[in-house]
């Protein structure tokens, strides 16, 4: 082969001699090399994502022993059960409320950090991202301990101020509040980071122009910041919606769906039916209910990401 010890040498080296064998020629063809480099990825995605996704649809049409084809009976069965309808409802409440608060807190904290002198921003950003860095299962464990029925550290504070202790995970409504709170705690820093990056990418001239036109801080936010960030907000919200809808760790560890099944979301209910109770087809059917919301969000995210890619460069 040719000399490659100085690949960056600018003087043109003599052209490579013609390939001798057919295999060699094939290897030198750009597109076949490219395809070969992609092959491991294609194998992984096909066998571990696409195939299981299809297999899941197949599984959902079987009976519990996986011996008989039952068509859509599993879905029909689920839709008739009150518990499942509550799961759908709770998943929606959980995801929508959590994403809303994450987005709000993220937006507020991103602006606050952006207000600081440039020197201190790094430190604050580093501190505020900690919830996102701790593995969720482990931080949820410490939240569980904070919500402990007899030793709750929050109740200690409430009682110190003369209030009544709260059954954080014992009362179904407080339990719903608690799992959402933990999700907001975990996800808000992600929004903060995304928004902060977006805020930095808004050209300074736009703010100067707005100031010359006499816009106050709020008007600048509404007429400059928001339109410039609209795309990134949409991407982050939709992405977070998917992740939150599919969340498993928080509910599984803190309540395992209880009390009275009122905190179950799709993932934990699918786990309960599919793995714990061994009815794999039914579990697969439950998790497939997530599919429509995921597909719709995914299409919009893709559109947003492409648009942002063009805007940036």
């Amino acid at each position: 082969m040719v000399d490659v010890t100085h690949p960056l040498r600018s003087a043109a080296a003599p052209a490579a001699p013609a390939a001798k064998t057919g295999l060699n020629r094939l290897m030198r063809r750009r597109s076949s090399v490219a395809f070969l480099m992609c092959l491991p990825l294609i194998v992984i995605i096909t066998s571990l994502v696409i195939y299981p996704a299809g297999y899941s649809m197949f599984l959902s049409t079987l009976n519990k022993a996986q011996t008989k084809f039952v068509g859509l009976d599993n879905f029909r069965f689920l839709l008739k059960r009150d518990v499942f309808l509550m799961v759908v409802w709770q998943s929606a409440i959980f995801a929508i409320t959590a994403v809303l608060f994450k987005a709000l807190i993220g937006l507020v904290t991103a602006h606050l950090v952006n207000n600081l002198p440039a020197k201190g921003q790094r430190k604050w950003r580093g501190m505020l991202l900690v919830p996102w860095v701790i593995p969720l299962a482990l931080s949820t464990l410490s939240w569980w301990w904070l919500f402990d029925p007899t030793h709750s550290a929050f109740n200690y504070v409430i009682e110190a101020f003369g209030g009544e202790p709260i059954a954080w995970l014992g009362n179904p409504y407080w339990a719903r509040f608690s799992v959402i709170l933990v999700n907001v705690w975990y996800g808000a820093p992600f929004f903060l980071i995304m928004y902060l990056a977006a805020l930095k990418s808004v050209p300074e001239q736009l703010y100067e122009a707005a100031k010359i036109d006499g816009a106050n801080a709020w008007q600048q936010f509404i007429h400059v910041t928001l339109p410039m960030m609209r795309n990134i907000i949409a991407i982050t919200v939709l992405f977070s919606l998917i992740v939150t809808f599919a969340n498993f760790d928080i509910v599984q560890i803190m309540t395992a769906g209880g009390p009275r099944n009122m905190t179950h979301v799709f993932a934990t209910y699918a786990f309960l039916l599919g793995i714990r109770s061994g009815d794999i087809p039914l579990g697969a059917s439950v998790s497939l209910f997530m599919f429509p919301i995921l597909a719709i969000s995914a299409v919009f995210i893709l559109r947003g990401v492409r648009k942002r890619g063009r805007e940036i460069g």
């Binding site: 994502v49 996704a53 899941s56 498993f248 786990f271 794999i280 697969a284 998790s287």
Partner: peptide, 8 residues
């Protein structure tokens, strides 16, 4: 998400 794939 992984929660869609863990059963299959």
């Amino acid at each position: 998400p992984d929660t869609l794939l863990f059963i299959p």
